[in-house]
Amino acid sequence: MTHANGKALDGKVVLVTGAGGGIGRALAIAMAASGARVVVNDIGASLTGDATGLNPGQQVVEEIRAAGGEAVHNGDSVADAAGAQRMVDLAVETFGRIDCVVNNAGILRDRIFHKMSLDDFDSVLKVHLYGAFHTSKAAALHFKEQGGGSFVHMTSTSGLIGNFGQANYAAAKLGVMALSKSIALDMQKFNVRSNCIAPFAWSRMTSSIPTETPEERARVERLKQMTPDKIAPLAIHLASDAAAGVSGQVFAVRNNEIFLMSQSRPLRSVHRSEGWTVESVASHAIPSLRASFFPLDRSGDVFCWDPV
């Protein structure tokens, strides 16, 4: 369902976090082009979350305005509950309402697990998981009162499947999936929807991939085809009224492919009427279930073909 001039997000007000570059920037610009008025949030930080002093979010606002769209910049951190509240307040004060929150802001602190510090873990959880909670909570009361709204959360196959050196990021991103499902369940009676996208896109978040061998360099060149703007059509749809029946789902976007990802359900069971002992678990339960064990896959093992 679109409005008279055919733009999917006409009349909508959208907050996009981490929108100074990469996927967030592409989404903010595309949503504005689709009729949305956009709050562009970005703290101007490096990949690890350290302030850079630059103001890329303001540059995105200027790009949107130059193209005839409406946008305003916010420089707060999603890791701060009061900052997240200010983002939502800015949307309501500037544009009169809030209709969609895109939880995109993120940082990386990759470390092999036994070398991961508390700060490495804590800082990543604070931005990705707590950040998604803070912005969603700030918008939830507005969504409830107006009888509708949409959350689009960025998750990752590093959490949904697995990856090396990313225990902090993976824990946060799988947490985001569970948060999204809980919001979808709790707020469905208010016509509020919540979905996840696991994006494959070349950005600062993937630019740390090693390029030491010809094979690695070739892979990176293929990854560079997966531009951030490829994520935009699905995100715009999920923010629009046309996605009224879509909630609690997890999608992935990989170049020109859109995937619906599985969610945890029982695979198989084994039963003994007399109950279990340690010995029968070892001799019966584990051998019976082993055929359905998951291998120690990484994301790249599951998505093992070239994007097209």
Rank of each mutant, 00 (worst) to 15 (best):
T2V: 15
H3W: 14
N5H: 13
G6F: 09
K7V: 04
L9N: 04
D10C: 10
D10I: 09
V16L: 04
G21C: 13
G21Y: 07
G21M: 10
G22L: 03
I23N: 01
R25T: 00
L27K: 09
L27D: 04
S34L: 04
V38K: 14
V38R: 13
V38S: 08
N41L: 05
I43W: 05
L47C: 00
T52R: 09
G53C: 06
N55Y: 09
G57Y: 06
Q59D: 12
V60E: 04
V61R: 11
V61P: 03
E62D: 15
A67F: 00
G69Q: 06
V72F: 00
H73L: 03
N74F: 02
A79K: 07
A79S: 15
D80R: 07
R86V: 01
R86M: 07
M87R: 05
M87D: 01
L90D: 01
A91L: 13
V92S: 04
V92R: 14
V92E: 07
G96S: 08
N103V: 03
A105R: 02
R111L: 05
R111N: 10
I112D: 05
I112T: 11
F113T: 11
K115W: 04
D119I: 05
S123F: 00
V124Y: 00
L129P: 04
A132C: 13
F133T: 00
S136G: 09
A140S: 14
H142D: 05
F143W: 06
S150Y: 01
F151E: 09
M154E: 11
M154V: 04
L160F: 04
N163I: 03
F164W: 08
Q166Y: 03
A167M: 11
Y169N: 00
A171Y: 00
G175V: 05
L179Y: 03
S180H: 07
A184K: 12
L185S: 12
L185G: 01
N191M: 08
N191I: 06
W202D: 05
S207T: 02
P210L: 11
P214S: 10
R217E: 14
R219T: 06
V220F: 07
L223V: 01
L223D: 01
K230L: 04
A232T: 09
L234D: 00
H237E: 04
H237I: 01
H237R: 08
L238W: 02
A242R: 06
A243R: 03
G245E: 07
S247A: 07
G248N: 12
V250H: 06
N255W: 10
N255T: 08
N255A: 12
E257S: 12
I258V: 15
L260F: 03
M261I: 10
S262C: 05
S262W: 09
Q263S: 14
S264C: 08
R265M: 09
P266E: 14
P266W: 09
L267T: 14
R268D: 06
H271F: 14
R272F: 06
S273M: 11
G275Q: 10
T277S: 15
T277A: 13
S288R: 11
F293M: 12
L296P: 07
D297I: 03
R298F: 06
D301E: 12
C304T: 08
C304M: 11
W305F: 06
D306E: 15
V308R: 13
